[in-house]
């Protein structure tokens, strides 16, 4: 029982980071049908920003603000220099454009900083443990789940209550109709990128507090998981992105923890099993948990 609870807490911790990233990917997909493979680079931006500030006397008290700001800025910048010019291209072209950006980002960090890992301080309390109902938790587990939950609430409020949020949702459903309401295309897309950047910034904070280091390819692994999570949830669906992230996180930790019990000697294939399940899922539900339909007239 203890093991199960701890596994679930771990799963929710990883899953909520996936969810934050998946939410950003889903949001961008909603407004411009782009599966943004450059989204993970925002974590890298955040990491190097922290590295830079720690070199010059940074502190974790205000570092999250710097990470959020840099990630949001970088996100808006990618739209400005790249995605704006292919806005009406096919999803295939859009996707490859984001890939090109991801490559460029890797190259630039390698050229201007180094391909080697750069580390900095982590907050002291991160791995402190405490006991609750006889189960040991790390402080960071609690912080991760708490911060994610808070971010989700804020996101929900932004998209429910503010005009910006309503405009983004409207534009995701019918871009031209939103323009007819007086919504400016450039502004709503930039705004969506900024918001996705903020979400990636939150994810970056959670990742960097645990493993305070920067390297050029840091964002890529997270990104792939997040894309998978977003597609599992159903691209364009916000609830789906969150669900997809949590499901993926739980799936990973649960298979790692329990596959050895179920099938002895096969435990080394636990990570492979996760991906086989994912592949099977896409065969059964190609459009994800929440299908977002965009009607096409014949």
């Amino acid at each position: 029982m203890t093991k199960l609870i701890q596994t679930i807490v771990d799963g929710l911790g990883v899953g909520s980071t996936y969810a934050l990233l998946a939410l950003g990917i889903s949001l961008i997909f909603g407004v411009m049908h782009l599966v943004n493979f450059a989204h993970g680079e925002l974590i890298t931006v955040g990491a190097y920003t922290s590295y830079f500030f720690f070199l010059h006397g940074g502190s974790w008290w205000w570092m999250p603000v710097a990470i959020l700001a840099s990630a949001a800025l970088a996100s808006v910048l990618t739209e400005l220099v790249a995605f704006r010019w292919v806005r009406n291209a096919s999803p295939f072209t859009l996707l490859l454009t984001s890939f090109a950006l991801e490559r460029l980002s890797h190259a630039l960090w390698q050229i201007f900083i180094s391909s080697k890992q750069r580390t900095f301080r982590k907050p002291k309390w991160v791995f402190n443990q405490f006991e609750l109902l006889g189960i040991k938790f790390e402080v960071m587990d609690l912080v991760t789940i708490g911060v994610t939950a808070a971010t989700m609430v804020v996101t929900a409020i932004v998209f429910k209550r503010t005009l910006f949020g309503v405009a983004v949702r409207g534009a995701a459903e019918d871009f031209d109709a939103a323009r007819l309401m007086g919504v400016r295309a450039n502004r709503v897309i930039s705004g969506a990128f900024a918001f996705a950047g903020l979400l990636a910034g939150v994810a970056a904070c959670l990742i960097l507090m645990r493993t305070p280091s920067a390297e050029p390819t840091l964002g890529s692994d997270w990104l792939l998981k997040a894309v998978i999570a977003a597609v599992i949830g159903g691209l364009g669906s916000f609830t789906g992105a969150v669900m997809g992230g949590l499901v993926l996180g739980l799936l990973e930790t649960l298979t790692r923890a329990y596959l050895p019990d179920v099938a002895t000697g096969w435990d080394k294939f636990a990570p492979a099993a996760v991906y086989i399940l994912i592949a099977a899922f896409f065969v059964i539900r190609p459009d994800g948990i929440f299908k977002v339909s965009h009607a096409e007239r014949v």
Binding site: G170, D174, A178
Partner: peptide, 29 residues
Amino acid sequence: VRAGLALVPEHRRIFKDLTVEENLRLGGS
């Protein structure tokens, strides 16, 4: 729209995923 010209498009194209109130708010963006 700011100059005072609005279109009610063919097939209405209301935002089906938004509530009635949200549709109106967006109209007054």
